[in-house]
Design a protein around this nucleic acid. Structure first.
Ligand code: FES
Ligand code: FES
Lengths: 147, 147
DNA sequence: TAATTCACGACAAGTTGAGTCAAGATTCTA
DNA sequence: TAGAATCTTGACTCAACTTGTCGTGAATTA
């Protein structure tokens, strides 16, 4: 498994914030409830995302978190790398080919290919895209309800 | 990290066996030495690969391991799944879309896409392909040596 | 000042990764 | 039949990571 819950929860939180942009700060507890994330764990994730500049937070009554950038300027890739660290599928993809890996293993190039595809996909998808998908999903759900 | 050393070592071993096909059984110790794998660990991996039918082994003096199939009929995908278990990048890719994941997260579809690409690549690459790549690599290496 | 909300670090239980080791089974050769 | 060579299997270890929980403290507002 490449992704732990950290990345998943973190993205969920950012989607939530993106959906409530312009409504003032959103509280941790609210995000946690809506997205089903343990609040005291979400704590750490929001802190990390703040440190990396994806959101800003204010303390005190009426405080909370809000996006620090436009949701279409935050790619899935950055967020996941912020929370999970590098997403390399196997360690040697960063080493230059022709080093030990090339001589001993011979599958390095396959994983470099796959990694490149991954980076393209994740780098080309923004939080705004995810929100849009979610909205469409909700509309479909509402439609089947009406029928 | 998606892959542990298990998958990597296992593939190395199969490549080694593929290169010595037709020369009788190859001993564990030899594979371990050539491919730099701890022998007593390689142990478990070969056992698993034998159970899943990718190689056969004989005991006693002169014994060892050999491929049980043609090297171009063993895909990287099967081998890795045999050794690592499922290669899903995140757990929910197998759940039907529209379940909890769709409502809470909204990034499921991205990972399903990536997973599909991964399966195509890994399923379309055989041990024979890896051996060929390795041979080409060696030739290039020899060439730069001559110059 | 009291209440609210985030910030940060310590801690803990469970799982996984990466091996190691030893006892046993099988086969070959002398 | 006695070794010797090989694979087979399961138990065991050690460290790191995951997924949290808690408690204290800091900032802000009313
Ligand atoms: S050493 Fe990198 S794929 Fe094997
Ligand atoms: S729940 Fe599957 S990607 Fe978030």
């Amino acid at each position: 498994m490449l992704l732990s819950t950290k990345g998943d929860y973190g993205v969920r939180a950012l989607i939530d914030l993106a959906k409530h942009v312009g409504e003032g700060p959103v509280q941790r507890a609210e995000i946690a409830r809506r997205r089903q994330i343990p609040e005291s764990y979400l704590d750490h994730l929001l802190a990390q995302l703040r440190r990396d500049g994806y959101l800003r937070s204010t303390r005190g009554p009426g405080g909370g978190h809000e996006l620090a950038k436009a949701s279409d300027e935050i790619t899935l890739l950055e967020v996941l790398e912020s929370l999970e660290g590098s997403l390399v599928p196997i360690e040697c993809v960063n080493e230059e080919p022709g080093s030990a890996a090339g001589a001993l293993c011979g599958q390095q190039w396959v994983w470099q290919d796959i990694y490149t595809l991954m980076l393209e996909r994740l780098g080309g998808t923004t939080i705004a895209d995810l929100v849009e998908h979610e909205n469409q999903h909700e509309q479909r759900f509402a439609a089947t309800y009406k029928i």
